[in-house]
């Protein structure tokens, strides 16, 4: 870890100016990922700008019936906020499927979007990594790829975005609010994170110096029929092998609206609108779910040790959609996967 200076910012504009004034500066929210990366020498910021005093930790209703999450609200406060529990239970489940209580107490909502991949090779300076050092090569390809992508990969990078929360945000059509040197703007959630392509060093579409100030959730929360299913190598405190956020709007047994997003399979939360289209207007049956699952995984490509994730993802999608459909029926013992906050 290198030496760095630290400023506790008290206003968004000042924070943005501070960032512009320091080359190699980084914003820091809860620091649950950045500090790790600094200890591993993967990140070497020379200046940190603390955001905790920006007053961006509120969660409040918006005039259009949605909910605004301040970028500095903690993951724990968000998950357990009464409006989130009532109107966006999918988000509650997704957040609680991630990390540990201690981490969620520190981690912020904006920071959750900014966390970096958990690719073993990205974290280990002894192995080349295009994301860490553009042009050095991808060590994961041909290596140990248990936590790696099967969708949207490139020859340069097969890393995944590790977040659970973001999978739910993708399914819920959230909007990211940012402030930067050129003022404020909003970014649709699906446009926020990027696929690796030839620039795997870029995780997202923020412009230099831009700061996330909040997340807007639209009014529709799919609170009646939803499921966040996370499959991993242990029951808690492990990143997803595959996770699925599934939401349905049902008219009797017919699907009126559906959202489907996957985690652990791509460089970004993987939303598949074509698969959603195969669900809408169809009966909520296993056959329908299987067709949608097949569609999502149509272009999937295994990397050897993660080939199994293709089949696992299909089964997880079918299960998540089934759970979303049968929400109000007695939970079967598959609750194992979701029972651990």
């Amino acid at each position: 870890m290198n030496s760095f200076t630290f400023t506790q910012a008290t206003a968004v504009e000042a924070a943005v100016q501070d960032k512009a004034a320091h080359e190699g500066a980084a914003y820091i929210g809860g620091g649950t990922n950045l500090i790790d990366l600094m200890k591993e020498n993967v990140a070497r910021p020379t200046h940190l700008i603390g955001l905790k005093n920006l007053g961006l930790d509120n969660i409040e209703n918006t005039p259009d019936g949605g909910l605004r999450l301040g970028a500095l609200a903690t993951n724990a406060d968000t998950a357990y906020h009464p409006e989130v529990e009532k109107r966006y239970p999918l988000l509650n489940q997704a957040i609680l499927a991630g990390a540990s209580p201690q981490l969620r107490n520190m981690a912020t909502d904006g920071g959750n979007l900014m966390q970096r991949t958990r690719c073993y090779y990205f974290y280990d300076l002894a192995t080349p990594c295009n994301k860490r050092e553009p042009g050095s090569g991808c060590s994961a390809i041909g290596g140990y790829t248990r936590v790696h992508a099967i969708l949207g990969t490139s020859e340069q990078c097969i890393a995944t975005h590790p977040s659970d929360m973001c999978v739910a945000l993708a399914a819920l059509d959230a909007t990211v609010r940012v402030s930067g040197p050129n003022g404020e703007r909003t970014i649709a959630f699906e446009d926020f994170h990027r696929l690796p392509g030839n620039t795997p060093e870029r995780d997202n579409n923020l412009e230099p110096g831009e700061l996330i100030t909040g997340l807007d959730l639209p009014a529709k929360g799919f609170e009646k029929n939803f499921s966040y299913l996370k499959l991993r190598d242990r029951t808690s405190y492990a990143f997803a092998l595959v996770s699925v956020a599934a939401t349905l709007e049902l008219d009797g047994t017919t699907i009126k609206d559906a959202r489907l997003a996957l985690g652990g399979v791509a460089h970004k939360p993987w939303r598949d609108k074509a698969a959603e289209a195969l669900l809408i207007g169809q009966p909520a049956t296993a056959d329908t779910f299987r067709r949608a699952a097949a569609k999502v995984l149509e272009g999937a490509k295994g990397q050897g040790t993660n080939n199994f994730k293709i089949e696992l993802a299909k089964r997880a999608i079918v299960r998540a959609l089934k759970q979303a459909t049968e929400m109000n029926q007695a939970l079967d013992a598959t609750a194992f996967q979701n029972s651990n906050p």
């Binding site: 958990r118 248990r146 492990a238």
Partner: peptide, 29 residues
């Protein structure tokens, strides 16, 4: 069910050399 030090033979190096990826049970298991 979970514990192994995973060697990438191309590097001759254990790649999951941390508590996050070297899995041992948590209370919920």
């Amino acid at each position: 069910l979970m514990e192994e030090s995973v060697m990438d033979h191309r590097f001759g190096r254990y790649m999951n050399h941390n508590y996050a990826e070297y899995h041992v049970p948590v209370n919920a298991d």
